[in-house]
């Protein structure tokens, strides 16, 4: 029973962590190249989810849904993800052009403020165009629950985890195997000198935002599948927490962001069963409501003992906020 219980929570944590990881990647990529945090990223995730909603509804009306469907659900899903990633990439590029490029020489905190403000504008624009009420994300694939020895797993959970890991691997390939990836890594290494040898700073910056936003869009659609209620503020707390994951992973470390994203998801989800097991073992009475308190105390402790995150480099004057 306890094993089942832990396994169940572990699977839930994997799904939850994959959202954090995908979003944290966007933060981390922008960070490694431009040395600034894109605080609008949480809201780009929201925009991505809404674009996904629009695209999937469009595709469903085009190809029919339910019994009259021309295309199977998973094809529509793949198309939705690809088209939305493409469209959201442009949102990222616009955000970079408007909010960050004029501020590249400015103190980094100023860019953080523009990021926050762009986030507010995106939320407000959403309310203006779609109204304040929540929208339902269409269930593109039939949900099937498997019972594996008392552990309940749905096909969607498996798919979400696999797709996120696939996207992370694809990103890894892009960064390590392509010329653009090399340019990005070079820029991350030294963004003052590298442009002098002919790497176009503006293109790389725009590309970074585009890739980060595309990943956020994918996260948004997967999120919509798992938790099918979209609201204009869904990106706010998610964005801040993914920001925590990005830094926890270590500044600008792509792998660190992935691992820290899964770790944060794991900490947040596993706190609840941990409390329950503690309660049972020591007959205490702590409520699961202490989840945030305990989860972020753990984060705080990790940072106290590893002040540069899991995979980050030490502080230097150049990297100051």
């Amino acid at each position: 029973m306890t094993v089942n219980f832990l396994m169940q929570n572990l699977i839930n944590a994997l799904q939850w962590g994959s959202f954090y990881a995908l979003i944290a990647l966007g933060y981390s990529m922008v960070y490694s190249i431009l040395m600034l945090f894109n605080f609008a990223h949480g809201d780009i995730f929201m925009v991505g989810a809404y674009i996904g909603l629009g695209v999937s509804l469009g595709l469903l009306s085009l190809f029919g849904s339910g019994a009259a469907a021309v295309l199977p659900g998973w094809v529509v899903l793949v198309l939705t993800i690809l088209i939305s990633m493409f469209l959201t990439a442009f949102v990222g590029i616009i955000v970079e052009r408007v909010g960050y490029r004029p501020l590249r020489e400015a103190p980094r905190a100023s860019a953080a403020i523009t990021g926050l403000m762009i986030g507010i504008i995106l939320e407000t624009a959403n309310i203006l165009f779609l109204g304040g009420s929540r929208l339902k994300f269409p269930q593109l694939i039939e949900s099937v629950t498997y019972n594996i020895g008392g552990v309940y797993v749905t096909n969607k959970k498996i798919m979400i985890v696999l797709v996120s890991i696939g996207l992370m691997l694809a990103l890894h390939q892009l960064i390590t195997r392509t010329k653009w990836g090399m340019a990005m890594r070079a820029m991350a290494y030294d963004y003052v000198v590298v442009p002098l040898v002919g790497v176009p700073m503006n293109t790389i910056a725009a590309m970074t935002f585009a890739i980060g936003s595309a990943l956020a869009a994918a996260a948004g659609i997967l999120f919509g599948l798992a938790y099918p209620v979209l609201d204009p503020y869904m990106g706010v707390s998610f964005g801040w927490k993914a920001f925590v994951a990005a830094i926890l992973g270590g500044r600008g470390s792509i792998m660190g962001a992935c691992i820290a994203g899964f770790m944060l998801g794991f900490i947040e989800i596993m706190t609840v069963p941990a409390i329950q097991i503690m309660n049972r073992l020591f007959s205490l009475n702590i409520g699961s409501n202490f989840r945030d308190l305990i989860a972020y105390s753990i984060v705080l402790l990790i940072l106290i003992f590893r002040p540069h995150g899991l995979f980050g480099q030490a502080y230097s004057a150049k990297l100051r906020l």
């Binding site: 219980f5 169940q8 929570n9 839930n12 799904q15 939850w16 999120f223 798992a226 938790y227 209620v229 503020y233 869904m234 706010v236 707390s237 989800i269 596993m270 609840v272 069963p273 329950q276 699961s288």
Partner: peptide, 12 residues
């Protein structure tokens, strides 16, 4: 408020 994942609580 704002939590989207209730799987841990439901498991219990």
């Amino acid at each position: 408020t704002g939590d989207k994942d209730f799987s841990a609580q439901m498991t219990n």
